[in-house]
């Protein structure tokens, strides 16, 4: 699936919740629980993304021309957010990752998490994932 196709799938998934923020967050939390976890020996300080109130570790691999991300966080909502990003961007070509507009975040009603002052650092996560992809082009 392309990034756009996955985004479309997620938008449809979130449409069910409407204004029900509780169900939306429960879904994010569930996604956090199913995140492909980063190997324990990769949870090093140099893999911590700065700008988050909780610790977020991100590991990037290039396998068969595709970027593979694994991540973890000690806060479950943050973990859910990053799971969402991994779902969209992992297993894609580096060029496509760098170009991705990530506009789906607005469409699933999580726009406020993109603010630069937001303590969960969703913006820092995306920047870091793109930066790591760019290094591998």
């Amino acid at each position: 699936m392309t990034i756009k196709e996955i985004e479309k799938e997620i938008i449809e998934e979130f449409e069910i919740f409407g204004d029900d923020w509780e169900s939306k967050y429960e879904h994010i939390i569930d996604m956090g629980k199913s995140l492909p976890l980063i190997n324990l020996n990769l949870k090093t300080n140099n893999r911590i993304i700065k700008g988050c109130q909780s610790n977020v570790w991100l590991n990037t691999d290039l396998i068969n021309d595709k970027i593979l991300y694994t991540a973890d966080s000690d806060a479950i909502i943050t973990k859910g957010m990053i799971a969402l990003m991994v779902r969209v961007l992992s297993n894609q070509k580096a060029e496509d990752i760098v170009k991705a507009d990530m506009d789906f975040i607005n469409q699933i009603g999580l726009k406020e998490h993109l603010s630069p002052t937001r303590a969960n650092g969703l913006l820092s996560m995306i920047n870091e994932m793109k930066k790591e992809a760019l290094k591998r082009i």
């Binding site: 967050y25 909502i77 943050t78 969960n120």
Partner: peptide, 20 residues
């Protein structure tokens, strides 16, 4: 549970706390 998770969810109920 991480304090950040507690604070984020409480905010949705209109409750302003500080975490960190």
């Amino acid at each position: 549970h991480h304090p950040f998770d507690i604070g984020t969810l409480l905010d949705n109920y209109g409750i302003a706390v500080r975490t960190g």
